[in-house]
Amino acid sequence: MQEFLQQLVNGITWGSIYALIALGYTMVYGILRLINFAHGDVYMVGAFVAYYAARVMGASGPVGPLAAVGILLIAMAACAGLGVVIERGAYKPLRTSPRLTALITAIGVSLLLENLGLIVFGADPKFFPQIVARKQMELVSGVIVGSHQLVVLGVAVFLMVLLQVVVFRTKIGRAMRAVSFHREAASLMGVSTDNVITFTFAVGSALAAAAGVLVALSNPKIDPLMGIMPGIKAFVAAVLGGIGNIPGAVVGGLIMGVAEVMVVGYVSSTFRDAIAFALLIIILLVKPTGLFGTGVSEKV
């Protein structure tokens, strides 16, 4: 029981990182019906921007909360910019093209970011400075939670709540929902769809950057190809929850994280990559639109 609870804590921490990446996938998909395969690489860039920001600040060990938040914000802002550049440069010219064309372009952008990363950041892994002091706390008897895990959970929950507020309580959020519901109709109602799409990319990319920084806190080894697997798994998490659905992405990410940690803990670490997909296939066979997805009825 003790071990199970420990695994659960680790799984939820890991899952909240998946959830943050999955949110970007699901928002972009909801608005453009585009699987933005470059999203996982934006997450990688986020970790590297934070790494260089920390280096410039001269941080090699724990820093104050203000500096840590500063590093996080720098990474998020840089990636929001990167997201906008990607959208304007690569996806906007293809708005009216077949969807698969945009998908291949997304794969191209992903390859471009990875290979640019290999040149700019270097192929050898870098060690992210431990900017949060490592302390361990006992939650209940025998279940230990690290300070970095608490930071990961805290930041993730805060960002998710913030996103929920932005999407459901602000004017731009209403515009986002309108565009995702029906782009042409929203455009006819005077919503500037191009701006809304750009804003969505910026928000999604900033969330991915935050996930990158949070991952670097617990697994300090970062390299230019670190985004490939988490990226694809976060996408699976988004599909699992019902792609285009924001709470679905969070739940999907948590399920995915917990399932992975449990498989590693109780079965074997070699099956880690398979469990995510096995779970996905089972869920989709039972509920073809994901857990929270609403099926679109076919019209003749």
Binding site: A90, S97, T101
Partner: peptide, 18 residues
Amino acid sequence: MVIYSALLIFLMIARPQG
């Protein structure tokens, strides 16, 4: 691979239908 991926993006934008 940088040139390869950049070319791929360029080709898809230039000829979306393949």
